[in-house]
Design a binder for these strands. Sequence first.
DNA 1: CTTTTCTCCTGTATGC
DNA 2: TGCATACAGGAGAAAA
Length: 291
Amino acid sequence: MPELPEVEVVRRGLAGHVVGRIIESAELRGARVARRHLPGPADLAARIAGTHVESARRRGKYLWLVLASPDGERQALLAHLGMSGQLLVEEPGAPDEKHLHARFLFADGGTELRFVDQRTFGGLALSELTDELVPDAIAHIAADPLEPAFDQALVVRRMKARDSAVKRALLDQTLVSGVGNIYADEALWRAQIHGERLCSALTRPALSRLLDHARDVMLEALGQGGTSFDALYVNVNGASGYFDRSLHAYGQEGRPCARCGTLIRREAFMNRSSYSCPRCQPRPRARGAGN
DNA sequence: CTTTTCTCCTGTATGC
DNA sequence: TGCATACAGGAGAAAA
């Protein structure tokens, strides 16, 4: 489940293996991989042929290559990995993966770039760039906690004004980007807050501490190459990270809390699973009409 | 406008 | 063994 740290690992791989090279051609298989590119896959392939890869960038869980045409025009090749997307750098002629959706060949004849995605929640698109080299297509996505532009005081104010559950806010990419289910649960565990507590019921310092924990846990995960539970999330060379060994809440149902020893519970929330410590993260009191 | 629910997809695990 | 069902869940459309 690629979240910010996993996507950043991939971005670094692209920076090391793809930036500076010239794309010779692209092959897109099926309509779904480029469904967000409205002119279609053939248009995408035609537009990036012959471009120079200037940089690899990221905001939250989005990743893009800044491509420059010979005439100097810039555009973004925007990628989202979804649940199971992979960007892999491979030797030419390596066997096609079962879920290979796109292949990029380079003018130097060296390694190729592939987009492989089992569940196809991910995809590729072309987008215009702002002056800050952010794709127009993700202008609605908020800054992530690792960006210099991240304004934590602003995010705290916006959270405080919400009447929704704090975990829902953490997962809202228009509020703060990059946090998914794993790191939301880890940040909440560290902050000792139950995810169903209302934003508006938490103090500003508590909300700020929660964001600090979200940034900290994602930085620590990045230092270990990200979190992997299986072969679905890998870096550009196909290797897995090992932060899963350091998780305290996510996926730990029935295991003792590292702080107090109480067994971690799993609860349904937003049609997903949430993991927390019943003792360190007590549920909010039931609310409703008449009480 | 804000907030919540639904939908997309396929491999793996579990139940009968 | 075989078949059905649950689950994983990011993001955007649709609904409330």
